[in-house]
Design a binder for these strands. Structure first.
Lengths: 191, 191
DNA sequence: ATTTGCCTAACGAACGTTAGTTTGTAGTCT
DNA sequence: AGACTACAAACTAACGTTCGTTAGGCAAAT
């Protein structure tokens, strides 16, 4: 990927984030770069190509993170805390891409769509495995495992909706708060 | 609203749910009803009109629910459980509308957009008030109140992504599981 | 007699994309 | 040093399609 292509991709992602994939036209993207719409096709084969690159780039980042964590011999709580920290780190350091990745992947068509869902499920399985370990260890409440996994992921992913890079909380702090919330809930522990 | 209009609205929502607002054309909607695209304009003034009706219908359902709960004199835990139960009930009994409401409201323009955000914030405030009460009562962990509110709402809203009307869990059961998760977290309480 | 619900036909605008060309720049050979 | 080649990145112009929407009319129900 050339420097210019990366530059264009970044500009495109800023607009896609703001307007959503389906509502963004190739002309919108070109305008923000002050080039002609046709010029984009010197770098990308189609509009969907931009979406594809964005979604799969993010997917592999998450993939790498979870696979590394799953090889480490920590207990479930530690593993979950690490997974959440990595997840938040990836989301917040690529905020535009992250929003597109989470929201617009449904617009992928054909094989791309299938492969994406596959990747997503594989990541979900990584998280599920950690929670399952926690239950097996007797440290986590027994609960519907699919339910727990989705609830964890939803609260983690939602941060892209309100995260402010200039806010008072950095990624690590958010991850810790979130981990505490997920692990301990709202109610005070009886000590 | 005539019977026919309600019927058309329902058909439209089924497609909007599947494809997303921006990616759905007026012709798509007409086709599913086996009428001509132009015929839709006997019932709706514009494509956005359909989105507007859907979003604001759902918004008032949530609004009514939270306002009623806020007038009741239960403690925070009971109130939060009730709010979650009502929320899940509304989502699952209007699944198509719910998905559009949660995902596509960004496509509202002008005044509609503004009013919608206002309504949404007002609902968020209702939930926030309950959590704040729990903290004041000394029953909930002290935590970033905005953070807690958003985390609660995100995990509740995410159920539309996986809820299956024919699955083994009904709305009430989901609400209870979710309440337990949010209130107690993953880690077992030390008794 | 009026209204309701749909039709046909068409509008102008915007859509993603293609073909073919121009421009600038960097490297290579005489 | 100057000429030649190669390539990247942009351009102009246009393509066929689809978009949301409107105008005007027609048949059945009220």
């Amino acid at each position: 990927m050339t420097e210019r292509k990366r530059q264009i991709l970044q500009s495109a992602q800023a607009i896609l984030k703001k307007k959503g994939y389906a509502a963004t036209s190739v002309r919108d993207i070109a305008k923000s770069l002050e080039i002609e719409p046709a010029s984009l096709y010197s770098h990308f084969s189609s509009k969907e190509d931009i979406l594809k690159l964005t979604c799969f780039d993010m997917a592999s980042k998450f993939d790498e993170a979870i696979q590394e964590i799953n090889t480490l011999y920590f207990d479930a709580e530690q593993q979950l805390r690490m997974a959440i920290r990595e997840h938040v780190q990836i989301l917040t350091s690529h905020l535009d891409s992250a929003i597109i990745f989470l929201r617009d992947w449904r617009n992928l068509t054909g094989e791309s769509h299938l492969k994406f869902v596959e990747k997503r499920n594989s990541y979900e399985n990584g998280i599920r495995k950690i929670i399952q370990t926690g239950i097996d260890e007797g440290r986590f409440n027994e609960s519907d495992i699919k339910f727990a996994t989705l609830t964890v992921l939803s609260s983690v992913n939602w941060i892209v909706e309100w995260y402010n890079p200039n806010g008072k909380l950095n990624a690590t702090q958010i991850a810790e708060k979130l981990s505490n919330f997920i692990l301990s809930g709202l109610i005070k522990n009886k000590l």
